[in-house]
């Protein structure tokens, strides 16, 4: 459980690292939209190339990207098989209830590439942006909502604390599991009801400790003069720079390319 690469941050100073986190978030949202608006191979090719460009510029070893893919490999295989067998049109191969159509193949390819691109892009975002930067950017992007009394700062702070404590709580879960196993807790056998019941010895200590931690963290924050978002400054200033503009222009070109491809060529789905 502990060596999940997904959601980790790798400090660095690559071009992608130095982009304004707000720009990264906005670009990521735009990217999700485009990747699902690609209807032919040319458009898919453009977005894939764009993804690859960012991965290369991030300067992070490909092995970490592979690791993040490993987690979802089954989802990818499952959904692509589902799409492969449920295509419409005349089958080119058929056996029992399984039939493969050209449309099915296209759909399988698209869904696979889309999911992989999506995971890689989100990994690229979290690998190159520290949780603080990320929540900071979200806080700033949502700032207009403050006008309607939406607790923007509080939510951003909660997010960053949650991100900080995920690995700690995972480790703790591991420890508690080991301790209960050492007392002969049986978590691997029995029916569903028994297995759910077997979780109690893990969940209760986990909750107790999470509450204790929360109390401790609150005390520690107060000791460090925390008093809400008003009047807070930031060590790391974020501002748009030339590189952000270049990134936006590149993205705009990609969007343009996808639109052109979609309208000039016929879709395959």
């Amino acid at each position: 459980m502990r060596d999940v690469a997904f959601g980790q941050y790798f400090p660095g100073s690559s071009l992608v690292h130095r982009l304004d986190p707000r720009a990264k978030i906005l670009m990521f949202i735009a990217y999700i939209v485009i990747i699902f608006c690609t209807f032919n191979y040319a458009a898919l090719g453009i977005t894939t190339a764009f993804t690859a460009l960012f991965l290369i510029l991030s300067g992070i070893s490909p092995k970490f990207y592979f690791k993040s893919l490993k987690v979802i490999i089954f989802i990818v295989i499952f959904t692509s098989l589902l799409n492969l067998f449920y295509g419409s049109g005349a089958p080119i191969w058929q056996w029992w209830i399984f039939r493969i159509t050209p449309n099915g193949i296209h759909r399988a390819v698209f869904v696979t590439v889309r999911i992989i691109c999506l995971i890689l892009a989100s990994s690229c975002l979290t690998f190159t942006t520290s949780p603080t930067e990320l929540t900071d950017a979200i806080e700033r992007l949502m700032k207009p909502l403050k006008a309607v009394r939406f607790p923007v700062h509080e939510i951003a702070m909660m997010m960053s604390l949650a991100l900080r404590f995920v690995p700690t709580l995972l480790e703790e879960t591991d420890k508690i599991m080991q301790a209960q196993k050492a007392r002969g807790a049986d978590m691997e056998s029995g029916n569903l009801f028994k297995r759910v019941k077997a979780l109690i010895p893990i969940l209760i200590p986990l909750f107790v400790s999470a509450f204790r931690r929360a109390y401790d963290v609150a005390t520690a924050m107060e000791c460090r003069c925390y008093r809400g978002g008003a009047g807070r400054t930031r060590m790391k200033q974020i501002h748009l720079a030339a590189r952000d503009v270049i990134a936006f222009v590149t993205l705009a070109l990609v969007i343009g390319g996808v639109i052109v491809c979609n309208s000039l060529m016929s879709g395959v789905l």
């Binding site: 420890k175 508690i176 080991q178 209960q180 050492a182 002969g184 107790v208 400790s209």
Partner: peptide, 16 residues
Amino acid sequence: RFKVGMVFQYPEYQLF
């Protein structure tokens, strides 16, 4: 596990 009993560090966290 019943023959080799193991008490971990800070074992009070296992009470439930």
